[in-house]
Each structure stands twice: as C-alpha cells, then as structure tokens.
Design a protein around this nucleic acid. Structure first.
Lengths: 231, 231
DNA sequence: TGTACATCAGTGAACGCGCGTTCACTGATGTAC
DNA sequence: TGTACATCAGTGAACGCGCGTTCACTGATGTAC
C-alpha cells in the first residue's frame, strides 16, 4: 500500500464527496424536484446504478445534503460569532445574522432545502435536528451571554404558565442565563431572522423593499432593540 | 334554451371549478410536485387531453390555483377584519392574524404554494401580485387606522434615507396615515406573521414550542406592543 | 319553426421523455495464510 | 513474498412507471337564416 495510491476507503470518501458536490450543483440549477440520481451519474460519467454503491436510495442522498447544509450554515455562523465574540452583543447579533443571510443568498437552493417547504413524503431523521441546532444555538449564545452580563433582577414570574405552551427544559439548555419570561422574545428574534430571509428569497419584498442589504441591517437593529441587547 | 339545461358557457365555468377543486384535493395529498394533469383527469373520469380544453398548460392551472389561494386567503382576512372593525386596533390585529393562521393550517399546501419555496421555473404573472396585496392590505389598514386615531406629532425625520432602501411610494399607498419612519416596524410585523406560520408549518418549532395556538397569540401580542397598537 | 353549418367538449392513440431501482456480470483491489 | 480467495466499484440491460403535450376524430350543442 504505497502512499501515493489511495486506499479503497479514501477513494470511497472522495467519491461520496464528488456525488454530493455534483448534486449541489444540480440542486442550484433545478431545485430539489429536478435533482435525480440518473443526472448526477450522467454528470459524473457513471452509469446510474453505480450510485447505489454509495447511497441506497435518493432519499438517503437528500438526507446527506440536508445534513451538510445545516452543518455548513452552522459552521459559517459559528465562525462569524467567533470573530466577533469580543464585541458588544449588538455587534455579535449583527455579525451572526449577517452570516446566516449571506450563506442563504449564496446557497439559495440549499437554504430552501432546510428552511423552505418540506419535501413531500420525506421524513428528516433525528440526525438533522441535531445539526439544525447549531444555528439556533449560536444565536442563543449571544442572547444568553448578554443576560449573563446584566445586573441581576429578582424574577417574580413563575414558569408555570410558560410551560403550557413552551418546552421550557429544551429552551433553558440553549438560553441558560435568560429568564423564562423572556423566552417568547427570544423565539421571536430567532424566527424573524429566517422570516426575513424567506420573504426576501421567496420574492415577497418585491414592490416594497428596494435595498434588502440595508433593510436587513435596519431590521436586525430593531430586533436587537427588542431584545435590549447591550452595545 | 330551457332554464334547467345549463348553457355551454355555464357548464364550462362549472367544469373549470371541478378541475380546480380536484387539483386542490390532489395538491393537499401530494404537494405541488405530485400534482399532474393526468391524475386530475383520471380522477374526473376524463381522458387527459380533455383538460387542454380548459387549461393550455400545467403552469396555467397552477397560476389559477395560486390566484385562487391568494384570493381565498385575502377574503378570509377581510371577512375577519370586517367582523372586528369596531374593536380596538389590538383586537383587530389579533383577529386578522388569527384568520391568516387558521387559513394556513386548514390549507397547508395551498399556503405553501403562495408563501413557501417558489416552484422552480414557474414565473408568477402580474395578476397574482395584485391578489397577494389583499392580505397585506388588510393588515396594513389596521395599523394605518390606528395611526389615524393617534394624536398628531410633528415629524422631524425626512424620508430621504428611507427612500434608499424602501419603495416609499408603494408603501404609502398601503399605510397612508403611518409616518415613514415607522415603515420598517410595519414591515417587521407583516413579515413576522408569515415567519411564524412558516416555522410552525415547516416544523422548525418542534422541540421548543408545545402549544402553537397559545404561542401565536402571545407572539402577536408582543408584535402589537411593538407597533404600539391601542387597546 | 326548421334546416345547414359552425363551434366546441371529450376521445383515443401516440410521441418522446425521464425517473428510481434491481440484477447478474466483470475486473480490479485488498486480505489471510 | 506469493498465492487463493473475498470484497467491492462500476457495467449494461431491463422493469415498470408516470409525465406533458399533440393530433385527427366523433358527436352533441348552439347559431344564423
């Protein structure tokens, strides 16, 4: 086994990457519906049945793409946050949300894959939920860190009524330093990042928004006010 | 031409309605991608080519469905608003947004058709934009009416910088009594209604939100605060 | 009111296409002794 | 180190499927005179 000649295992990993790269390219050209195993194979100069060595089914390939998308976006956000972690909460918030939007705009079809209309009859496996949490986790950390720096206030509100409509235990893990009566605001902020990007990408702002770059910053600033982020 | 026997024109209108109804049923079962002219025809006991008497192409049928969806949702919101027009702005806001959510939840695939990922290669004609405005128009009226009742304040801000990122003339038509420096807030409110519904329908709240009905009301109440709606 | 002709809904066959998946196979790469 | 066998990537043909759209046609409904 010479070092120049790649082992079978390494070649396999490489081939899987190629399949996913080609799939992403085709995805960008024709959307999820237009993505077919046969075309991927054709594009790679392979016979279509060859792909079944790597993915047992089309859905399995789709799952891999979804997982990669979540992780790709997740690490883009984490990277942006790492670069701005020493700045004010407000600046961190802007950096992280801008990173999300930038990724979405440069990978619109992958974005649609994870935040758009779910693919009919496709059921996301557990794994993807975990990867999805990286993005919201990064945003949550910014807010929670901000609260950690605020002067302590005695919390009067009990979490009892919040428990009726929120899954408090899960949220607390992401927002350890945020008092439960601010969970709704946090979820609004999180929702709005994607609400804006969806509206922008899916064309709803045509006719009202002229410059979405500027608008996004303004909106995220309003949300930062809404969260009372320090600057 | 007896009155019991329907004229050819009336039969034609009826047949178009049947085609759209069957299409909506199939849409609900299999999503946009799964909607095919052949299946609609089969379902109606017709031969597939017969549908071409009514719709020149699959896209034309899709356009009709999109148009109907916007109008159906639009009239649901308008109806809800008419019923609550005498109440406080806050209650009107709740009534209108609830109507939107209720329609979305009872017509999820039609909702996805108009607010979800755009169908690839499908271009929405002008007509649909007009119908889309009915929904945002109803929401806008609530906010604008509220401002009409507020005590006048001298507006110091010029609209010059707002013009750089918003299409002020179009927005003013929808929000005649709202000062331009509140346009961003208005767009945030509008965006959030659909941002929430998208997240709910597309499964992003799994793991955090236990009862979306309650959560939606809370969130819309926060947005009403954000808009400073009177109650 | 009756007849001749035009209009139009629906038929049935066909074209040409692409899809996911299976299966028996070849030949190269890797492993055990 | 060399040989025998097992593993695995890729082939090529095939199965069975559904799709959008076209076209020449039949027969019923509507219109003009």
């Amino acid at each position: 086994m010479s070092p120049v000649k790649k082992t079978r295992a390494a070649a396999r990993v490489e081939q899987i990457e190629t399949i996913k790269d080609v799939s992403r390219r085709l995805l960008a050209e024709k959307g999820v519906t237009g993505l077919s195993l046969r075309e991927v194979a054709r594009e790679m100069g392979l016979v279509s049945s060859a792909l079944y060595r790597y993915f047992a089914t089309r859905d399995e390939l789709l799952t891999a793409l979804i997982l990669d998308a979540y992780n790709d976006l997740g690490s883009a956000v984490e990277r942006a946050d790492r670069r701005s972690v020493t700045l004010s909460s407000r600046r961190r918030w802007h950096a992280a949300t801008r990173a999300i939007r930038r990724w979405a705009k440069s990978h619109p079809h992958e974005y649609a894959l994870i935040y758009g209309t779910p693919v009919p009859n496709y059921v996301a496996p557990e794994l993807t939920i975990e990867a999805a949490t990286r993005v919201s986790g990064a945003l949550a950390r910014i807010l929670s860190d901000d609260w950690a720096r605020r002067p302590p206030t005695r919390t009067t509100a009990s979490t009892a009524n919040i428990r009726t409509f929120l899954i408090v235990d899960n949220i607390r893990e992401l927002l350890p330093d945020v008092p439960p009566d601010h969970y709704v605001k946090a979820l609004i902020a999180w929702t709005h990042v994607f609400g804006f990007i969806n509206f922008e990408l899916f064309g709803q702002y045509v006719g009202t928004v002229r410059n979405a770059d500027v608008m996004f910053d303004r909106v995220m600033d309003e949300i930062a006010d809404f969260l009372e982020l320090g600057d």
